[in-house]
């Protein structure tokens, strides 16, 4: 912190923009939270406090099914992409062949492809292969899309991990798999958790891919929300939004607490933002 003090005084413009930015960021969120407690159906005038929309939500089997479906999709996608993305990160980081670079480029393509393209393409490949569209297809598409995030984050951490430690383990008699399991993987845990949380959160709220790859019921939550807002939304949706906000806030706080749990210097948030490789 001493470093910051030596800098020039705070740049006024930046501070003002930041304050305005936070206001802009949170106004609609407060509106959502506020109107989720409105006692009337209106979304523009608050007439009185009521929890009826939460009651509605918890009695709406279709919405609950969607919520469960989205949680399942996010969980399976996070685990699946963690496994594949970590394998890929290792392969790419340790195999420095031309073929490795080609594979590396391919896996990063989803990051530079607009989601609508990925969505359309996934729809075509699934229907073409005769798969029944449903939660399975959504999960397949989401994993494909998320592998790149895991790879980028884990690979970054792996690059900063001194290979000598692993070599030392092998000099002490470990097999390559043992040195991987006992030495390298534990060091990667914060990165794994961070990327798992990131993928979970991204997939849970992902609309475009889910929209194109979903089929039979239950619909993922964002798809259900989309279909209800086209024709005017019920405040039960605001209740859902408020609950989702709470859940994601908890997830982020968990991510912030991670470094304390693992006694590492840097926050796992740094992993997500890329600040780790300083």
């Amino acid at each position: 912190m001493a470093r910051a003090k030596k800098l020039e005084r705070k740049p006024l413009v930046a501070v003002v923009v930041t304050v305005l930015f936070f206001a802009w960021l949170y106004v609609p969120i407060f509106a959502v939270a506020l109107f989720s407690f409105n006692d009337k159906k209106s979304l523009s005038a608050f007439s009185g406090f009521s929890t009826r929309w939460y009651v509605d939500f918890f009695h709406n089997e279709a919405l609950l099914e969607s919520l469960r479906a989205s949680l399942l999709i996010a969980l399976v996608s996070a685990v699946g992409s963690l496994v594949l993305g970590t394998m890929l990160a290792f392969g790419l980081e340790r195999v420095r062949s031309r073929r490795g670079r080609v594979v590396g480029a391919i896996t990063l393509l989803p990051l530079v492809t607009p989601e609508i393209v990925t969505g359309v393409a996934a729809l075509l490949v699934f229907t073409g292969a005769g798969l029944k569209l449903g939660l399975d297809t959504v999960i397949l598409a989401e994993i494909t899309f998320s592998i790149a995030y895991v790879t980028v984050i884990v690979r970054g951490r792996l690059a900063s991990f001194p290979l000598e430690v692993e070599e030392a383990a092998r000099d002490l008699g470990c097999t390559p798999w043992q040195s991987l399991r006992l030495v390298t993987l534990p060091a990667l845990v914060p990165a794994l958790i961070a990327s798992g949380l990131l993928v979970f959160a991204l997939v849970f709220d992902d609309f475009v891919l889910a929209f194109f790859t979903t089929g039979v019921d239950p619909q993922p939550l964002p798809v259900r929300i989309y279909s209800s807002i086209r024709f005017g939304v019920s405040p039960a949706i605001n209740a859902v939004g408020t609950l989702m906000l709470l859940v994601s806030a908890l997830l982020i706080v968990a991510a912030l607490m991670l470094p304390r749990l693992f006694k590492s210097r840097s926050s796992s948030l740094d992993l997500i933002t890329g600040g780790e490789r300083r």
Partner: peptide, 21 residues
Amino acid sequence: AAIVVPFFASYLIRMYAWKAL
């Protein structure tokens, strides 16, 4: 974190909130 949190709470609902506002 305060910037990241809202971005994970339904994009669609936030857009709809803007529509009302």
